[in-house]
């Protein structure tokens, strides 16, 4: 996927991030995720868990099978999400 060039580094998807990744949420793109939820519902839920633009995120843990799900620190809260849904979070 293509994104606006950004001076602070290339943007990537939280769904691809490995353990130890730290970054900031740049955008939510519900269409990116092959989730069973609609794009807007997925974005709503992510926002309700604190994933808004500018929030600091860190991938703390990964599951065993397919490194899925991931435990993500969003500011001062830890949430577990599947990579499938985390694809909707664009991070830099």
């Amino acid at each position: 996927m293509t994104l606006d060039p950004d001076p602070s580094g290339p943007a990537s998807l939280l769904g691809h991030a490995r353990r130890g990744f730290t970054g900031t949420v740049q955008a939510l793109k519900g269409d990116n995720a092959l989730s069973s939820l609609s794009a807007s519902e997925l974005e709503s839920r992510l926002i309700e868990l604190g994933f808004v633009e500018g929030a600091r995120v860190e991938v703390l843990h990964e599951g065993l099978i397919g490194r899925d799900p991931i435990a993500v620190r969003v500011e001062n809260l830890t949430v577990a999400v599947r990579r499938r849904e985390a694809m909707a979070v664009v991070v830099i």
Binding site: L34, S36, L49, T78, V79, A80, R82, E85
Partner: peptide
């Protein structure tokens, strides 16, 4: 035929 429901949980 249904995609798996999402898993999102506060730890």
């Amino acid at each position: 035929d249904h995609a798996p429901a999402p898993f999102m949980l506060e730890l």
